[in-house]
Design a protein around this nucleic acid. Structure first.
Length: 477
RNA sequence: GACCGGGUAGUCAAGCUUGGUAUGAUACAUGCUUGGGGUGCAUGUGAUCGCGAGUUCAAAUCUCGCCUCGGUCACCA
């Protein structure tokens, strides 16, 4: 059996190894960046959907589905938006051998087609707020450098698009989206920094963009979600007009936010270890696996005991399975650790004798013996403890990832170190400095801390002129 | 887009320089065995050697063209 690449030795090789071996994604499609999301991966995404759908529901979002084909003219309507996407849009130009009169874009994102409909749905302020969520796939042929889940040419995501009758309401919606995503990341034990992206890095057509970045163990950062305040830019182009209470007219104030299967990449990268995935209990499709440790002559007694324990745990509404396949117990231990199942219950002759079970937790690898009457109570508590443990680890990762730099030399040292993380520093606001930063250090300005004006503590890290804002710099995937 | 490296059973590799009937591990199937950290043994299944053309008595191997995957860089709103 081949040996895992060690996470500390070669992070990217480790990641690819885990994704392949845990059967999350199969990349052997012969189509670059368009992969099979296998059931192990799909189950995690499914849980993610359930968690988010619950939040969409309680905040009044409606789920809908819009077409994959977008008329080219829709994309062209918002020129800034169009130009931002041009290099990565895939087009359908033919039906069989016959060339189409008008070509269709395969959605790289759904603003245009959704807002075209919104303009027909919205007549008055009473039609708003309109909050629509869509689960779908999108296609962006933006790079040759694809990595399963981290950067694909086709991927699954959620995109929500809202319309409001006042700019204040749109700002509130931005905050609501931050709660929806933030609480989801919390439940997945993911660390994140929320920043307002610099003007030059704002979503094309938007007033401003908020992004969620998570630090990865290799010192780079990963954007795992974005929220955009679109103001009236798209509404004016797509003619989303409404009548106000006083009889006057205005264009809708819009927001949109999205999050993709890339979050799964973050979860794998942040929590995983040299044995494979470690899934946060709330997200884990399977929370407990029961593995029988069979010895000759005791097969039936052990099988019976496993089934009893299975039933008891199922009654407690815990996601549990009993693996009674013919594989050896050692094989199963390794297998379920690879898959990141938070808790494993081992039942063998010794356990039968002592009238209990052995419980192993995935995060710390600790094993304890508990008597039969304490099983459900123990695993319920353990699921909580594992969540806490993962949150503690993540807090450490976040703390380690944060540092300040006052001079360019300091910044350069950090960016060239093994773990650059987020470096907090000062910036004059000039895009030329941002370009130079990218050129020289291959690092990017992620943005300013959202909702908090930080005190400037030096001159611009690049040009040494007067700084206008405190920004966070990182190397990003 | 630039440069580099690959394509041989499901998977990973050897063979290629110096042409001569396809090699191993693993996986899979069957049986026995074993079982508290990827059991062991036996038997068996599985490859038009990426595609096309050329050279040759003979091509996985040499030549040319194409396709495709990967890596590094650029790009990534």
């Amino acid at each position: 059996m081949s040996v895992f690449t060690k996470k500390k030795e070669d992070f990217m090789a480790w990641y690819l190894d885990v994704v392949r071996r845990a059967q999350i994604v199969d990349t052997r499609t012969e189509v670059k960046g368009m992969n099979v999301l296998l059931s192990n991966g799909y189950d995690i995404w499914d849980r993610m959907k359930k968690i988010l759908d619950e939040k969409f529901y309680i905040t009044g979002h409606k789920n809908m589905y819009f077409p994959l084909f977008i008329p080219e003219k829709f994309l062209e309507l918002e020129s800034e938006h169009f130009e931002g996407f041009v290099p990565e849009v895939a087009y359908v130009t033919h039906a069989g051998e016959k060339k189409l009169d008008k070509k269709f874009a395969l959605r790289p994102t759904s603003e245009t087609i959704m807002y075209h409909m919104y303009s027909q749905w919205i007549r008055a302020y009473t039609d708003m707020p309109l909050k629509v969520n869509q689960w779908c796939n999108i296609i962006r042929i933006d790079t040759k450098d694809t990595k399963p889940l981290l950067r694909d040419r086709e991927f699954q995501w959620t995109e929500a698009h809202t319309c409001h009758s006042t700019p204040e309401e749109a700002v509130e919606q931005v905050k609501e989206s931050m709660w929806i995503y933030g609480s989801t990341y919390d439940e997945c034990c993911l660390p994140y920094l929320i920043t307002k992206r610099p003007k030059y890095d704002t979503f094309p057509g938007a007033l401003y963009s908020i992004a969620y970045d998570t630090p990865l163990p290799d010192g780079k950062t990963l954007q795992i979600g974005t929220t955009h305040n679109l103001d009236q830019g798209f509404a004016k182009v797509f003619n989303i007009r409404f009548q106000k209470e006083d009889g006057s007219h205005d264009h809708a104030y819009q927001t949109c936010y999205g999050l993709s299967t890339r979050v799964m990449a973050a979860i794998i990268c942040v929590h995983g270890d040299d044995r494979g995935l470690i899934l946060p209990p709330y997200l884990a499709p399977l929370q407990v696996i029961i593995v029988p440790v069979i010895f000759k002559g005791k097969e039936e007694a052990i099988d019976k005991e496993c089934k009893e324990v299975l039933e008891e745990i199922q009654k407690a509404n815990i996601r549990v399975k009993y693996d009674d396949s013919d594989k050896t117990s050692g094989f199963k231990f390794n297998e379920y650790e690879l898959l990141g199942v938070p808790i494993r219950i081992e039942i063998g002759p010794k356990d039968l004798e002592k009238k209990g079970v052995t419980i192993a937790r995935r995060d710390t690898k600790d094993r304890i013996f508990v008597t039969k009457d304490k099983i459900v109570e123990t695993i319920t508590k353990l699921l909580e403890e594992i969540t806490e443990e993962l949150k503690n680890r993540v807090k450490m990762l976040m703390d380690e990832s944060m540092s300040d730099a006052k001079t360019y030399d300091e910044l350069e040292n950090k960016m060239n170190s093994k773990k650059p993380g987020f470096v907090r520093t000062n910036w004059c606001g000039d895009i030329a400095c941002a370009d130079e930063l990218k050129e020289r250090l291959k690092a990017e300005i992620r943005g300013t801390l959202y909702g908090e004006e930080e005190e400037i503590f030096g001159s611009c890290i690049i040009c040494d002129e007067e700084a206008k804002e405190v920004v966070y710099i990182s190397k990003a995937y």
